[in-house]
Design a protein around this nucleic acid. Structure first.
Lengths: 148, 148
DNA sequence: TTGCGTGCAAAGGTTTTGCATGGCA
DNA sequence: TGCCATGCAAAACCTTTGCACGCAA
């Protein structure tokens, strides 16, 4: 089922997946992936990268995150494939420093269930990004507020 | 405080804000805003629109939503300005039909408090978009699953 | 041989920037 | 007058598409 197509082996596909599996829980952009390929000595075009990432996203092996229309998309390896999910892992994007951070939180699992039962909305934790302000920046902000 | 600059009156600024206030709870793209101006007979350039929207977003009168890196950003009027928030109103984007829907849910308010207390992350409900699958598409999906 | 994978080049679209002009205070 | 707002044009950016070639089965 993982491939109506895609049963072909490919140097690029293998390398990308192999590298992804070495950096679980890390989010990377196409540029960073491209840089990795360059450092490996394997030549690759951006076109191929986008197509591979689309394929991996469809297969559920990789999650795609949109953070801003201007900045590039982020991709992250899903270690357990499309088998068991880990709904307690969420992404938070800091609006001040721009950091994308991981958050383990069972509370969100409850929200997910609530959304499904009461609002008939099936939340996709692999794609959802919570926007806000991170710990560090909250402190900075408080400090600045005093100065002004 | 609402304007280190921006104390200038401007036909475009006024018209944009006036129109926004007539469509509370609606999200529009720059193209749609542009179309509105055309229908009003007021000429405007996209450059101006982007600058006005940036300004309104900074002033907290308008919220900017990112839905996809490919598709344009969405803007929405915040009726109560940056005074009292309405944290029970959230945005959900359906990954199948692409609809952006509103959701009133007090449950999320609890999550917000939890995130702040336990994880020191200040959630921004004006910007956060929850991805998932909406009611209608869940039904369609179920129907399709039976056919296949 | 067949069909997918690849890569170059070009197009698509949104958003930003530079610079000269016009309008408000 | 001074400063900001505007708009045109061009650029920057990420992403997608078309088409020919290469490679796996």
């Amino acid at each position: 089922m993982a491939g109506s197509r895609g049963n072909y082996k490919s140097k690029h596909y293998d390398e990308l997946l192999a590298w992804f599996s070495t950096i679980p829980g890390q989010h990377v952009t196409t540029q960073e992936i491209y840089a990795h390929f360059v450092s490996t000595g394997i030549t690759v075009g951006m076109t191929t990268l986008y197509r591979l990432l689309d394929r991996l996203t469809e297969e559920g092996l990789v999650a795609k995150y949109t953070v801003d229309p201007t900045s590039p998309a982020c991709y992250e390896f899903i270690s357990n494939g499309n088998q068991t999910d880990e709904p307690s892992l969420y992404h938070c994007k800091c609006e001040m420093c721009g950091k994308l951070i991981h958050l383990h939180c069972d509370e969100i699992k409850e929200l997910q269930e609530h959304l499904l039962k009461e609002h008939h909305f099936l939340l996709n934790p692999k794609r959802t990004v919570l926007y806000g302000i991170c710990d560090e920046c909250l402190k900075k902000q408080a400090a600045n507020a005093q100065r002004i």
